[in-house]
Design a protein around this nucleic acid. Structure first.
Length: 568
RNA sequence: GGGUCAGUAGCUCAGUUGGAUAGAGCACGCGCCUUCUAAGCGCGGGGUCGGGGGUUCGAAUCCCUCCUGGCCCA
């Protein structure tokens, strides 16, 4: 697609001795359209050229060559304002839209390998709303990178390993028959876990047995492995229900346990660097000279490994298996120090720089309850399946009230309710904390998922009424040059750029905000203009624009992981 | 205590990487459905961009400092 900024930069570069790329980065888009579509602030040049900014602007204006794309240039103060040819913009955008089913899709990523590590719930623990963000942010990034031509691998790095399993196994051995873990696995396992922890406090012997169980698990003891496998399987079955609702998919389920036999190599390599030192019985790596004043613990004093070791083993494995250009770790900001340490230590593994430079922690804010942090131990967590169930049931009530004759009510309620939850999590910057509130998350009005779905449904409804959409060749562009249409066309023009920005910052909220803007622009258009009108030429053009908006809303929402109903 | 992230309207958040008069949504008030879905649209009030210094033609944005809060580490 034509790059208007580039074209303007090119014209300016013919007059001023600054390279095109720099000029392009100076060009901005004014907030107020009366200041044009693009603007070049001349203040930067004042010092160098020893002239007042308005004088420079005027001088450029005198010399600049207008093109097909640039219709008019005006000087306002020190700004040089460019007005582009709207017909050219509209033609360009609609051409691009009509070309392919998937607008904005590209090969930009050039099949670079991206590994995204997300969701990663803990086996035998509740899948609560704290896990939602990782799942949803990671999922959106997965879709968007893929859309831009990257070769993406989604990894669910399950928390399926660690000393807590020694305890759980012991609890299960002791009282397994009292609990129906086949039926309600996670709840029952949680009960066992609480009970065994109590028992450990009372009786040293039991604690000893727990430790032994974990050791046995590591050494391949048949019974322990069987039990652990059962926990894992049953937990995954429950997680899968949530993943099905959210539409989450993973290419790999290699969790922590997968790396249990890959850690000795890591320790060996680190040992050989001479940087691995003993401290209070533990093996650590000092990172002070790297500006991190907490050492990274590789092996605890009792000989067991840490999260860090497992993550290092994972880096090694992923480098070999996926030849990654980037690994994105989508976890909450609680883990910033952990990843800082791991990424630093990874440089000691003897890997190519390509790998160590590609490690990135995509951190996000926490979901808090009005009372503070959630805690599994205190039992004040909100289960994700319950949240989703509630979302669906609220959507259902609204359908009952607004559109009682709708077909497939249940299916629509599912899409709307879950869409609201997903969008809510993606609509503000990752880093923001979120205080959980039912009415905020399940709000269906204003800047929400359902608003985007609703706008989409409106476009479908119009298209259904007119039955057929004209070919682009039959559209008279001059029918789309009003203020409301142009607002839409400009946004459509920005779609691909928006996707690129998402990957540059690993920030899906940029796409979420974009979709809100587009839905708003269409709602304005829809409100101000009748689409089905007497003037058939006008109708054709407006229908085509409607079709365009619908297409992008759907594509964008699906990239975020939302599903679109056709009616609601 | 050290590190780190954040602070913008009553609440929740945008703010094009330093540009023109700081914008939305929610909530509140008023208006708009005999014609394409009112889960919508319009109008209205509401701001010391945490405070103070600095850099700059120009700062919510960059630097310094202090305050408040979150998180991590001991």
């Amino acid at each position: 697609m034509k790059n208007f900024k580039q074209i303007i930069a090119k014209q300016i570069s013919k007059i001023i001795n600054i390279n095109e790329q720099d000029l392009k980065s100076y060009i901005e888009t004014p907030k107020d359209t009366k200041n044009g579509d693009y603007s070049f602030p001349c203040f930067k040049l004042a010092k160098e050229l020893r002239k007042a900014p308005p004088a420079i602007a005027n001088e450029i204006k005198e010399k600049i060559e207008l093109t097909n794309e640039i219709e008019k240039v005006e000087v306002t103060g020190g700004y040089l304002n460019f007005f582009i040819n709207k017909g050219e913009l509209a033609t360009e955008v609609l051409n691009e839209i009509s070309k392919s089913e998937q607008y904005g899709k590209s090969e930009l990523g050039n099949t670079k390998n991206i590994v995204i590590d997300y969701s990663a719930p803990n086996i035998a623990k509740q899948f609560h709303i704290g896990h939602l963000r990782s799942t949803v942010i990671g999922g959106a990034l997965y879709n968007i990178y893929k859309y831009l031509g990257y070769n993406v691998t989604g990894v669910n790095h399950l928390g399926d390993y660690g000393t807590q399993f020694g305890k759980l196994i012991e609890g299960y051995k002791l009282w397994g028959k009292e609990y129906d873990i086949e039926k309600d696995a996670i709840n029952e396992l949680t009960k066992i876990y609480i009970r065994i922890n109590e028992a450990c406090k009372q009786d040293e012997k039991i604690l000893e047995n727990c430790r032994n169980n974990f050791k046995k698990l590591e050494e391949g003891d048949q019974e322990c492995i069987e039990i652990w496998k059962k926990f894992r399987e049953l937990s995954l079955k429950e997680f899968q229900k949530v993943y099905d609702l959210l539409g989450s998919k993973f290419d790999s389920w290699n969790g922590e346990s997968f790396y249990s036999d890959k850690m000795p190599e890591i320790i060996d390599i680190l040992q050989k660097t001479g940087k691995l030192v003993e401290s209070q019985g533990a093996k650590i790596i000092e990172l002070e000279e790297k500006g991190i004043n907490t050492p990274c613990i590789i092996e605890k004093s009792n000989g067991s490994t840490t999260y860090a070791t497992r993550d290092l083993a994972a880096i090694m494995y992923r480098a070999r298996t996926y030849n990654f250009d980037k690994v994105l770790y989508v976890t909450s900001y609680e883990q910033v120090l952990h990843f800082k340490q791991v990424f630093e230590v990874a440089k000691l593994l003897g890997l190519e720089e390509k790998y160590t430079n590609g490690l990135e922690h995509v951190s996000f804010g926490m979901v808090l309850l009005p009372t503070g942090k959630m805690s599994t131990r205190e039992g004040n967590v909100i289960r994700l399946d319950e949240l989703l169930k509630e979302a669906i049931s609220r959507a259902q009530k609204i359908i009952e009230q607004k559109n009682p004759n709708l077909e497939n009510k249940e299916e629509v309620a599912k899409k709307v309710g879950i869409g609201a939850v997903i969008f809510n999590d993606l609509s503000s910057s990752r880093i923001k904390d979120e205080v959980f509130d039912w009415d905020t998350i399940l709000n269906f009005q204003g800047e929400t998922g359902p608003y985007i779905q609703y706008t989409y449904v409106r476009t479908k409804s119009v298209l259904e009424k007119v039955a057929n959409i004209s070919k682009l060749e039959d559209i008279k562009i001059e029918n789309l040059l009003d203020k409301y249409s142009l607002e839409i066309l400009k946004l459509v023009y920005n779609f691909e750029d928006t996707l690129i920005q998402v990957t540059e910052k690993n920030e899906p909220s940029i796409l979420a905000r974009y979709l809100i803007e587009l839905a708003k622009a269409y709602s304005n258009f829809y409100n101000e203009n009748k689409i089905i009108v007497e003037d058939k030429e006008l109708q054709k053009a407006r229908v085509y624009l409607t079709y365009t908006v619908g297409k992008i809303l759907k594509q964008g929402a699906e990239l975020l992981g939302m599903q679109m109903p056709e009616k609601m």
